[in-house]
Computed example of a mutant assay.
Amino acid sequence: MKKIIGITGGIGSGKSTVLDLLEKNFSAYIIKADDVAKQLMEPGGKAFIEVVDFFGEEILLPDGTIDRKKLAAVVFANPNKRIVLNSITHPLVKKKIMEQIACLKAEDTYEYCFVEAALLIEDHYQTVCDEFWYIYVPETLRRERLKASRGYTDEKIDSILKSQLTEEEFAKACAHTVDNSKDLDFTLSQLEKLLQM
């Protein structure tokens, strides 16, 4: 495997679109921290028991799985509870991602592994990745996209943006910036250049 690259960027920057382009056009394996977290939060998953122990059975659906909307509402309303949730899930997610990368290196099927995590920088994924790429889209366009695709209000977008790093902080922590504000061809041409370096 040539490189393990971390993908990060603010909400609405189109990280999923970039990951799709990488998966379809290059020898790339994609790991999304959110997907890993979901697996760990399934009944029997390592995070499930600890989360239910702390937050109580009222966060469970009738089928015994965690009601993600209810849990999100609880942690959104109480920053301290969000800290607890993160302290349970993030170390487990990181450990699982490191295990996946070790397997990928052993199999040696892919040239690249891309790891996408909301807190890539804050959770010190530089110990896992060779470099970080910042997916950039101007805030005005990100706001438009979030309203159109997710129906978010300005208030909701404001509160999310407040909890994320600034454009300057993202750019400073990343080796490269990918401008994802135009069409797919524009983004793809940047990815091609970066992977030829």
Rank of each mutant, 00 (worst) to 15 (best):
M1R: 09
M1T: 10
K3T: 07
K3V: 01
I4C: 08
I5E: 04
I7D: 00
S13W: 03
S13E: 02
G14R: 00
V18K: 00
V18T: 00
L21S: 02
L22R: 01
L22K: 03
S27P: 06
S27N: 12
I30C: 02
I31L: 04
I31H: 01
K32V: 05
A33Y: 00
D34R: 00
D34T: 00
A37E: 01
K38Y: 05
Q39G: 08
Q39E: 15
L40T: 03
L40F: 05
M41E: 14
K46Y: 03
A47W: 10
F48D: 07
F48L: 07
I49N: 13
I49Q: 14
E50R: 14
V52M: 09
F55H: 08
F55M: 11
G56A: 11
E57K: 15
E57L: 11
E58I: 13
I59V: 13
L60Q: 13
L60T: 12
P62I: 05
T65E: 14
T65K: 14
T65F: 08
R68V: 06
K69L: 14
L71C: 08
L71T: 06
V74N: 05
F76C: 04
A77C: 10
N78Q: 10
N78R: 08
P79Q: 07
P79G: 10
K81T: 09
K81S: 10
K81C: 04
K81G: 04
R82K: 13
I83M: 12
I83S: 12
L85N: 08
L85P: 08
N86M: 08
N86H: 07
N86W: 03
V93Q: 05
K94L: 14
K94T: 13
K95Q: 15
I97G: 08
Q100M: 15
A102K: 15
L104T: 06
Y110Q: 13
Y110C: 11
E111M: 09
Y112P: 05
F114Y: 02
F114W: 04
F114Q: 00
V115D: 06
A118F: 05
A118Y: 04
I121D: 05
I121S: 11
E122I: 07
E122P: 05
D123C: 12
D123R: 12
D123V: 08
H124T: 11
E131L: 15
E131A: 15
F132H: 09
F132G: 05
F132I: 10
Y136A: 10
P138L: 07
E139R: 15
T140H: 14
E144Y: 13
A148W: 06
A148H: 13
G151E: 12
E155S: 12
D158Y: 11
D158S: 12
S159M: 14
S159P: 05
S159Q: 15
I160Y: 03
I160V: 10
I160S: 07
I160N: 09
L161G: 02
K162T: 07
S163Y: 05
L165W: 11
T166M: 04
T166N: 03
E167Y: 09
F170E: 02
A171H: 08
K172Q: 15
A173R: 11
C174I: 04
T177G: 09
T177L: 09
T177F: 02
N180H: 02
D183Y: 11
Q190M: 06
L191F: 01
L191E: 02
K193R: 14
K193C: 10
L194W: 11
